[in-house]
Design a protein around this nucleic acid. Sequence first.
DNA 1: GTTCGTTAGTAAAGGTTACTAACAATTAAA
DNA 2: TTTAATTGTTAGTAACCTTTACTAACGAAC
Lengths: 396, 396
Amino acid sequence: MTQQGTRQGPGLASQRTAPPTRRFASVVRAGSRVTPERARSHNRALVLQELYRSEGLSRADLARAVGLTRVTISDLVADLIADGLVIELGLRSDVRPGKPATLLDINRTGFAVVALDLSYDNLFRGVVTDLDGTVQHRDQTDVTGVTGDDAVAAVAALLDRLVARAAAPVLGVGVGSPGIVDDAGTVLSAPNLGWADVPLQALLAERTDLPVVVANDANAAALAERTFGGGQEDAVLIRVGRGVGSGLVIGGLLVRGAHSAAGELGHVVVGTDGGDVCACGKSGCLETWLAIPRLQARLEAAPDAEARRAALAAAGERLGISLAPVVGALNLGEVVLSGPLDLLDGSLLESAAETIRSRTMADAFGGPAVRMTTLGRDIVVLGAAVMVLTGQLGVF
Amino acid sequence: MTQQGTRQGPGLASQRTAPPTRRFASVVRAGSRVTPERARSHNRALVLQELYRSEGLSRADLARAVGLTRVTISDLVADLIADGLVIELGLRSDVRPGKPATLLDINRTGFAVVALDLSYDNLFRGVVTDLDGTVQHRDQTDVTGVTGDDAVAAVAALLDRLVARAAAPVLGVGVGSPGIVDDAGTVLSAPNLGWADVPLQALLAERTDLPVVVANDANAAALAERTFGGGQEDAVLIRVGRGVGSGLVIGGLLVRGAHSAAGELGHVVVGTDGGDVCACGKSGCLETWLAIPRLQARLEAAPDAEARRAALAAAGERLGISLAPVVGALNLGEVVLSGPLDLLDGSLLESAAETIRSRTMADAFGGPAVRMTTLGRDIVVLGAAVMVLTGQLGVF
DNA sequence: GTTCGTTAGTAAAGGTTACTAACAATTAAA
DNA sequence: TTTAATTGTTAGTAACCTTTACTAACGAAC
């Protein structure tokens, strides 16, 4: 063989034998064989997703958007109509040549989702929504001093009442719970509710005979922000309340973590200059700077408005300090805060944003957007509803 | 309808109309319709992946592992054998009833991968490997003072030499480059090489007429650790050299970031007590504590062994401080270091591990494992090879 | 040595899926 | 009126995986 040195062109060695003709672009997760049936339900989910995002599409529109042929789309749509998930809206009234299209939409009020938020102080809240996330009914129950099995019973009772009030078949139940929740919906640890290894998903699924999904409240909130709040594909949601939690969305997918504990940011120590002692035993945890009770105490101790502003700014700075490495390492595009507007939305948020920018590499895009959620107090129940939609319809 | 109140059992409302019979577990990415052909290549990739991980499997073993029938597996294997990707090893010699199995394996030496590492000081390194990542040939080229187009030419020349030396058809080319690299393999920014918006992937693909993948060096290293180094599904790899970079693997997948800049941890400010001025203009960046030149300068300035140990421990502590929020937020199972063993593997690593543990919530699993990589200096080229295997075979 | 049970791999038939090709229906524009 | 464009359906085809049934090969028990 001749010496090629730095000669241009492909090396001869690679041409002695023909390389395999086919290329495999798909990266595959273990145990995920694709049968024709699975492929079909995947394509069904694609159609639903497209309809979910933009109502008023025709079968031909769907074919163009999804990439399947009109014939296949017609077949899939017929299935979906038969299942009651899709409805025909009538003919399109456009002025253009050709046969007028029949517009379709998801049957948005044809099914209901029941969603619960267990993360409030002494209160369980729940809603019934349609497939759009529009709240159709609310309910709540006081759980002051209620823990352990009694708290589980309170969840079940609230859930029963909500399911009874649903005006359409219930697609499933979503629950946002405080604490650490594993993939199977078992609450591994929720100190405030006195829960340890409570198989909430299994308990509620057996009781209601409905699909049930359980996840951490801040994680659910992150999903809600992604789906209903216009959140980016790479974002973190910080939930400030009695404690501090967070949910991370990376590449559009929720991060669960090695031990299902992703988002547990409240007990990470911030800075290198000490800080207050935390309930967890360490000093200077993010919670000691940012949790609402601590923040309110500082505000009450402040002599004047300027001191109050400084206290909020200091809390925001601490948040920024702890988020900067996360934003940098993950190259997040967005940081969203959820919690009391009067405390968070102002100098606290501004200070957090400025701190993050000054401590990370200001890339060509000017650092991440830092903002409040627009979803308000419903963010967790909406996230719980998203989990149901994702699990049952493949929509997200 | 009767009032249900807190009565047990499923609400009647949900039973008025039958819910849709089918459930859709699959969550779907936009634009990813599944045709039968795509399903087939997905299943092919599954078979390859299973063979890749554990050699010496029979068709029947594959059927059990993948979940497809023996018939389908036989058909897929016949395809793979025809393509030269799989070979028969002969009969299994076990002592057990039944017809002896014909063992299969990936044709590990039947194809070659060419991989480059552009992240060294004044040096481009490259290797030819087989499908196992076993290095079969090495080459390198000095690039002291070479930047811009000349550096691109040096890459191309090295690549040509390597391709010419490959003893089997080249499956593809992987490149680990310093700087920020986007999805298309364009190096958006690599100051040390004087590169900005260099379409390296396109340039090399056109020149060699081979599949080319380009990614950031630390990101590639993270993939190598995951595939060849026994890395966990949720881990971060820290690469310490002239600068400090990192690569994150979440749920087994590499994180790319909102602007393809995931892993840029070197210029995140650490702590709240100032620090040295960095080349980027800020003070107290992780690089000012951890980059090898800075570390060596501190060691030379140290009067005795104890002071040198303290300097290393201080650097490790800074690493731990900046990683703690990342480990906490993502619930990482593992932190892996890559770089000079004599500096990193000792009090620096121990100090980093201890700092991370003391600053995050010590969960029931005792915090993340913190260790050195076992892949040594080849980690980036191996990661580049993994990218090729992933892209061309769906193996990872 | 024969029979039985087990395992590996192949062959044929069948059902599902999505595709191409062709066509009817409908409307705007020439 | 004719032409072009668009929608949605029907009919037929190719690809895929499955079920069922088969042969081959082996160990164990009698």
